[in-house]
Design a protein around this nucleic acid. Structure first.
Lengths: 162, 162
DNA sequence: CAAATAAGGATATTATTTATCCTTGATCAA
DNA sequence: TTGATCAAGGATAAATAATATCCTTATTTG
């Protein structure tokens, strides 16, 4: 059970978009080049963000992506779910129903106890991601990344932002 | 990102084994029949439990599986990890290293901030599963399952336990 | 000795992930 | 107006993981 690599890509792309000046856009091409990723496939991840309403897009030269909301209003969960989907990690196939002792007309009243427990763990995972904002990530990165690298990266992006 | 169906199977099988009288074993065949599962493939899941030391096995007629510990000493996490593995759901490919502005001799001191956040969510998931014992599940099931079904299932298992 | 069992290797099938390629319609700048 | 650039998305292919099935081996029981 492993998350799609697109989740990692989307999170890093959002971190870059969070540093973009108001009203400007960054293209898939620039984001792919900055992160060393395949442009066409990264595009699918960005389309996921777009469909979820997390980013705005603009066509044509100087077009691309920008955040649709302030970084403080975007959670990790928003981004992860936009790319990975909202499905639970545990799928209950209700195998209790195969019990040979079970009456044929018997109907379970509530979801299987096993599923309820596994789903509670899923929810704990979601809750943790819901508690981290994109702005939190930017705060950590601005502390950890050396100032020169931070500055040169910002300039690299600005040169390519429409 | 979906857990293997074998995780569901293993959890239900452990719930059955928890009801087995001291010193007796239940075969893959019986467990597969009880849950309506493919015997050969279920066998792989049970081998996972065995390799993790969660169950004891016995060969020959009247052989099979039994729990290696009391149900109160077996957590959901034990069972899930035995089948699914202990790998994290988020794999960091360190794409920050592809940043074209990064000096060639530059070396990151600590894991990527994105990975640390995602791993913290993984840990919250694990912590939730670590907090649920197999005995808790048995307690819930004994409350929820109608007494006749509970009883007949127990008898069905006893008839086949070696 | 014969039947039943777990363990595990080999292989096949199916689904999912990871791409790549191409077309369409919108946008912008010259 | 024209040509370059862009996002969106459909079609397809390749690689990887999940889901099986089959078979052999060694062990145990009656």
């Amino acid at each position: 059970m492993i998350l799609k690599s697109q989740v990692e890509w989307a999170l890093h792309c959002c971190a870059i978009l969070a540093g973009l000046p108001e009203g400007r856009y960054l293209s898939t091409k620039a984001l792919a080049e900055f992160h060393g990723l395949p442009k066409e496939y990264l595009s699918k991840a960005l389309q996921g963000l777009s469909q979820a309403g997390l980013v705005d897009t603009a066509l044509g030269p100087s077009g691309g992506y920008r955040l649709a909301k302030p970084p403080a209003d975007l959670t990790f969960l928003d981004i992860v779910e936009a790319v990975e989907g909202r499905q639970r990690t545990f799928v209950c196939t209700n195998i209790r129903a195969n019990n040979p002792c079970r009456p044929k007309d018997y109907c379970e009243s509530s979801p299987c106890a096993v599923a309820r427990i596994m789903w509670a763990a899923d929810e704990a995972w979601r809750e943790k991601l819901r508690g981290v904002k994109l702005s939190d990530l930017v705060g950590i990165l601005s502390q950890e990344i050396p100032p020169e690298l931070w500055k040169s990266s910002f300039e690299w992006v600005l040169e390519r932002a429409g």
